[in-house]
Amino acid sequence: MAEDEMTQAENEISDAENVNEEAAAPVDETAHEIAHAHIPSDTTDVLGITLPFPIYTAVFVILAVLTVIEVVVGTGSSGAVIAIILAAIAFGKAYLVVSYYMHLRTDNRLFTYTLVFPLIVGILGILWLILVAPEAGGVE
């Protein structure tokens, strides 16, 4: 549920970003040099409404909201489903930071691979270590 919310928000943001990209089209030579940095504009368009702050602030608000949702979902209840939802939200937040704050959406694709490949290696490593770990922890 929370995840859906997130992806929805995300799509809107990416739409907004596309618009901004055109708005920030380079005009002179110096702008040419740095244009690949994709400087977002000072406003964010969400659902047709223009909000008076940049996309980064919008992402921050979403991150904060997701954190609140996480805490609400996570405290008190537990179980496999809850754990999966929480993990999904956490990865969603990480995705937002990585793609917007660390600019992976617009930067060199190679950087994405540089992050994703070790991530796969690391996650497989963690899963393996959990798999082979002994059931009970020795002498209590």
Binding site: E70, A87, A90, A94, V97, V98, Y101
Partner: peptide, 18 residues
């Protein structure tokens, strides 16, 4: 800095919530 933030996002959920 953002990477450190991302790590905390994961750690927070894993250690305190899941």
């Amino acid at each position: 800095w953002h990477f450190v933030d991302v790590v905390w996002i994961i750690l927070f959920t894993m250690i305190y919530l899941i």
